[in-house]
Nucleic acid binder design. Sequence first.
DNA 1: ATGGCCAATATGATTGGA
Length: 263
Amino acid sequence: MRIATWNVNSVRQRLENLTAWLAERSPDIVCLQETKTVDEAFPRAEIEALGYNVAVHGQKTFNGVAILSKFKFDEVIPRLPGDPADDHARFIEATISTKTGSLRVASIYLPNGNPTGTDKYTYKLKWMDRLFKYAHDRLQLEEPLVMAGDYNVIPTAADVHNPAAWTADALFLPQTREKFRSLTLLGLTDAIRAVSDAPGLYTFWDYQAGAWQKNWGIRIDHLLLSPQATDRLTTAGIDKHVRSWERPSDHVPVYVDLDIEPV
DNA sequence: ATGGCCAATATGATTGGA
């Protein structure tokens, strides 16, 4: 079972890259972020034609998440619990049936939080607290769980080309990193770091200032695995080459292979 | 880490992104 995450920065602008990457990597389940469209305008038919079921939770202009799956969804739940007044489309989870029980996958678009010192950063921290509560509750189920998405968190200095330039940024502030670390301390495993300690593993390069050409990257797209998923982890990787394609997203896909069979 | 970008919007300037 191959599960991936990709912040596509507009699914409609990225449809050609998305379909090319789906053919190349053949993921079974894909979590998308920043789809930037209302559900009615999501290119559902084009993706269904490639053999995927599609679950969407979008809104006008910004944000928007989705899950694609080669296997049918048993359950689809949009919105992160904990704040009914939060109208940002940043979370959707789904379950599918496997030979050893239910597999749960969440597509997460965690708030950026810049500029710091504003309500945007407060919103980010509160959202992370809600995500902690969600993870804590779901871990009680003791089932394979993959929380995949754009966390907008640089976990450590090894995950950024120039740490000094990011010390005051909402993605790298100690309080941000502490809240991300609390997720791993709950028992979730950062899949990429489970397979490699190498520096220079990035998932995002800014469009500006020639960041891609200079490899000024950061690692902010993560797949966090429950113990029952981690036990079955065989591979984790980053499709860096996708950043060099025509009209790319500023993020690239990240994926894991889990030794789990669908029904 | 901003000189340089990109996407969406009743759009031709503004907002959001990271």
